[in-house]
Design a binder for these strands. Sequence first.
RNA 1: GCGCGCGUAGCUCAGUUGGAUAGAGCGUCGCCCUCCGGAGGCGAAGGUCGCAGGUUCGAAUCCUGCCGCGCGCACCA
Length: 550
Amino acid sequence: MNQAEALRAEIARAARTLGAPHDVVPHLERPRDPSFGDWATNVAMTLTKPLARKPRDVAEALIAAMDLPSVGATAAEIAGPGFINFRLDPGFQARGLLQILAAPEQWGRSDVGQGANACVEFVSANPTGPLHVGHGRQAALGDAISALLEATGWKVSREFYYNDGGVQIANLALSVQARVRELSGADAAIPEGGYHGEYIREIASNYVAQHPEDREGNDLNALRVFAVAALRHEQDLDLQAFGVKFDTYYLESSLYTDGRVDSTVKALQASGHTFEEEGALFLRTTTVGDDKDRVMKKSAAKGGDYTYFVPDVAYHVTKWERGYTRAINVQGADHHSTTTRVRAGLQALEIGIPKGYPEYVLHQMVTVVRGGEEVKISKRAGSYVTVRDLIDDVGRDAVRYFFLMRKGDSQLVFDVDLARSQSEENPVYYIQMAHARMCGIFRVGEIDAASITGANVDLGVLAEPAEVELVKALLDYPALLVGAADAAEPHRVAAWLLETARLGHLWYHKHHVLGEPEAITQARLVLARATQLGLAAGLRLLGLTAPERM
RNA sequence: GCGCGCGUAGCUCAGUUGGAUAGAGCGUCGCCCUCCGGAGGCGAAGGUCGCAGGUUCGAAUCCUGCCGCGCGCACCA
């Protein structure tokens, strides 16, 4: 049990002696102003009604009923309408750092997920071109959300759904065909809705080199297979360069071949939530808030195919059946119309899937800016900027951090000049520098950092305000992860890193570690080591490196 | 027109799920400093949290209606 939990438990115990409900869970928060204390609770105000007493009365009785020393508290004061502010003994508080030193790899990890299975689906790009910046944001978000879930006790599968059928793939094949024919001197145009990027030319010439028997590009099926394989390979290389690995690749085509699409349609029809109109089969989605009912199967006149959301529903049934109690889909906000449909389909099946399943993390657009100007195209892809462009330009760490530093709901401006600058205005550099600085202390002092355990060190001397603030920030990390994982919001970790790095720099500039009286040096070495490990843990979680020198 | 998201300091954004005098970085203006690691430290100015109502002990946060921006509104995916 950590310090905050111990304090919470003691408040709850005291509250029960006053007659509070047995299941009371006092809310703890950091006061906005550190001068108020180290922890605050509003529990006295929430108990006003059940206890039928005034908030300040409750607070007073609560404090009297608490064993403050047992939880390291030196004072408890009533403030404002009924807050209780607790002050913790600095040495007691700093002893929380020992947990970091004892098991750095475990730091921040918890078991709130209790080993349940979660599926995080992200990127899921059609194999029709190199990955663009939106995919990059999805890759960073999906990978970080996965890491967050893993750190909080979930068993996570990172999944990539391949749309390997459908109109877009057909257009890809036709686009390559046009370029092949162009090579043989024929006059051929890219079809409507086709792909114009430079990479299509590369694929075409590779195709001709490997298929000398089809210089005219007549074998559309061979073209399609070749192009999809080439682009899947290319996307794999992009993801590899980004350091993202998937556990599962799920092919849309397999949903047809193993009969899941048909069985899903039959089940939906049996459920009574479908109807036929003008020769097409509809799902009644208006009952769950959609603005119109959606076509599942096109009329014969339109080809009689299933629309894309039918395999989508079938696919999400497999997630449920594969035992994922939590499924998170990371997509661009332009896909938000699918959420209602997929959920409606799953609900219509009436097989016990929760209403909010799957969860969607939808992110807004990314604008790439260089030299103050928006960048819109890349040579290779033509109409859009690729992830590869960014990685080559500013490096993997910066790309990852920049994609994660804003919450997905907000639009993101990716300033390439800032991302590559070696200055403290660059948040990535700033955070990594803080880590490297802590490492530097041990290097200069010729001390083996791993030998620092904090045993027999009086941490009570870590009482300078800058030290107390840094200690508190470091100890907030585990709870931060729980909240971030629950909300699927990695940007909280990015913000925590920046703030903790700031406090680390501040402390470093204000106080010396080496060359102080022995007792102080020993205590500060513990804080330096904990800061280094704490920052490294956060960086690692987001998939960033923690360099020892820069 | 309908749906979703966003609107917080000059700029870029946080805001612990409804709490105290709304914060940080950059920029601006003062004053210091040159220290284990490249410049940093201290302080100041700067806000009607888009607007107007509502809910309650208490709202940037929840509800309603407007305004502005983005995205989406196919028998496309």
